[in-house]
Design a protein around this nucleic acid. Sequence first.
DNA 1: CTGAATCCAATACGATACTG
DNA 2: CAGTATCGTATTGGATTCAG
Lengths: 128, 128
Amino acid sequence: MEAPEVTETTPELACPIAPIVDIVFSRWTTPILWSLNEYGRQRFVELHRRIATITPKVLTQRLRQLERDGLITRTYHAEVPPRVEYEISELGRSLGPMFATLAEWSPNLAKVADARAHYDDRSRSSAR
Amino acid sequence: MEAPEVTETTPELACPIAPIVDIVFSRWTTPILWSLNEYGRQRFVELHRRIATITPKVLTQRLRQLERDGLITRTYHAEVPPRVEYEISELGRSLGPMFATLAEWSPNLAKVADARAHYDDRSRSSAR
DNA sequence: CTGAATCCAATACGATACTG
DNA sequence: CAGTATCGTATTGGATTCAG
């Protein structure tokens, strides 16, 4: 579990948004943040059910990372059985506009699919 | 019987923006797209110089991927020595607002740094 | 110059079993 | 329930070399 330093400078001087991408768009973080932002506070199992293809181990890792980055909060209730609730933080909620802008780009996914079909087609006929 | 599985089992269904993240924010794609969008058409070496920490192999891989997705165009000039120019496509240019929204979140990076410091500090004092 | 080919290391991920 | 521990695998990226 590595966390790139926020103060990272050298590699991506060419791209000022790279640090944000590392924090917000690393693997699995998008579904997690989206779920918490969309459906509110949830327990571990609820998140796991919603993102069924992730393993508990990795889900835990990503949740810890997001908690450490201050994007979500973790509340432990010492009951039997134990209950843990995750909730998006205020900082995490500030990502809303970003997600909205992303979602607005969705119609272009069809163009990507077309481009891929074209590219693969031309590659197949060796027109390069 | 057909019933396409529309259950919320895949990350994509739990998070509609996941496909976009895969395309736009996979590794190295952000600096590449940013450079081409910001500084215009560039040759392979220019990109390589700008993103100095990437190896030629990986740069080539990522450029091919972006070309296949229709986000950039590749122009080969059969000269000696050969000259290849990469340019952002119209589809790629449509990512501009997304990048702008990302950039606007930059001030929050300080909060992430603070959150990390807090988290690491509390972990060190075993207050968990 | 623009890559392709090959080999190698790191590590992230999945599967499984187990605990408080 | 909410994880942790351990192991094995698989993908990815880096280093190096070479070619059209």
